[in-house]
């Protein structure tokens, strides 16, 4: 049972949240120019790291807002939570090519 800090409501049990997988995967602006491979990568391909991972959560039994979490998938430590449109701390940013 994780303790997740909703950026809008504060710390809550994970039972209040629903999970939305990897964060910072933007829908292509013009999907029609995507190759099948690019479209498949957008739709289906997700990272599965052991360690810090930026992911999306939604406070389903609370404010119902989507937000982002950097969670260590190994220790389950919540390293950061932040709003949609914001970015992880550079020091812990797990995204490829950023750290």
């Amino acid at each position: 049972m994780l303790l997740i800090t909703c950026p809008y409501c504060g710390p809550r049990d994970d039972a209040e949240f629903s999970y939305g997988n990897q964060a910072h995967i933007a829908r292509p602006v013009d999907p029609s120019v995507c190759s099948d491979q690019e479209w498949a990568e957008y739709l289906y391909y997700r990272d599965n790291p052991k360690g810090p991972f930026a992911e999306r959560w939604m406070h389903a039994a609370g404010c119902r807002r989507w937000f982002h979490v950097v969670r260590d998938t190994n220790t389950h430590a919540i390293l950061q939570t932040y709003k949609v449109g914001e970015w992880p701390d550079p020091a812990i940013d797990p995204r490829e090519g950023t750290s």
Binding site: D30, S32, L43
Partner: peptide, 13 residues
Amino acid sequence: KPDFIGKRGMARP
């Protein structure tokens, strides 16, 4: 319509 959810997906051969 240039785009709607599912349009690109449906275009898969």
